[in-house]
Design a protein around this nucleic acid. Structure first.
Length: 218
DNA sequence: TAGGCCATCTGGTCCT
DNA sequence: AGGACCAGATGGCCTA
């Protein structure tokens, strides 16, 4: 977890550096198993390893609902689940267990699809030569990216308010007023402007220069 | 070879 | 009862 340890001071930058730099993964998993990187919302990664052979890309869930996924531990153990393998007593019929397994597999695939969608909008190098973000890295990077965006947005708002106020008063604001000196505020935490279909927010008494619906208004 | 990452299976818990 | 969600266990693949 070296990458996680490096997240201390500037997590976003740390991760961006780790994953933004193209580094070859050679003949390894990447090329063979679909480390192609997010290619948009409809991106479906090439099946990873076992998943390629197993359930992930199988079109018929009915099929894998009655057999252990090929390549899965259960499959390797002999092509059939051994309910008592872990010393547990089977409490449900085999068909039910397989159905539950298939459902769980599907759920995890949906989760992975969502993660792929997230990867596709996170600004890091999306290239076949760049290793795909791990799950944990994706989440941490996304979180910090959101925080950065919120901070940038807030700074822009302050700047707009500063400029608007300066125009209205015709005089420069006191030098003590630092429009960038306050802590970040999360997006959409302000008051929605009346009549703005985008429900954008801005400082009281100001329109948002960042919102086209505000700026387009006569 | 160790460590990281992942997919899958499984049983438990909670909710509808 | 059935489904969703979760966490632990297991084993495979890849990289340093």
């Amino acid at each position: 977890m070296a990458e996680l340890k490096s997240l201390g001071s500037d997590p976003y930058l740390a991760l961006a550096q780790s994953y933004g730099q193209p580094f070859a993964y050679g003949s390894g998993r990447g090329a063979a198993e679909g480390y192609a990187g997010g290619a948009g919302g409809a991106f479906h990664p090439a099946p990873l390893g076992k998943a390629a052979e197993s359930s992930g890309e199988q079109s018929g869930d009915e099929e894998d609902a009655f057999e252990p996924a090929p390549g899965s531990p259960a499959f390797e153990r002999g092509g059939a689940l051994k309910p008592g393998a872990l010393g547990r007593k089977p409490k449900e019929p085999r068909s039910l267990r397989l159905s539950i397994n298939a459902r769980e597999r599907r759920r995890m695939h949906d989760l992975n699809d969502a993660l792929d969608g997230l990867r596709s909008v996170i600004p890091y190098a999306h290239s076949p030569s760049v290793r795909k973000l791990s799950k944990i890295a994706t989440l941490l990077l996304a979180k910090n990216y959101i925080l950065m965006q919120a901070q940038a947005l807030e700074e822009m708002r302050r700047l707009v308010a500063y400029l608007n106020q300066g125009q209205a008063l015709g005089a420069p604001l006191p030098a003590t007023l630092n429009p960038f000196g306050q802590s970040a505020v999360y997006p959409f935490s302000g008051t929605a402007l009346p009549g703005c279909p985008e429900k954008c927010t801005a400082f009281p008494g100001t329109t948002s220069a960042l919102c086209k619906h505000c700026t387009d208004k006569p």
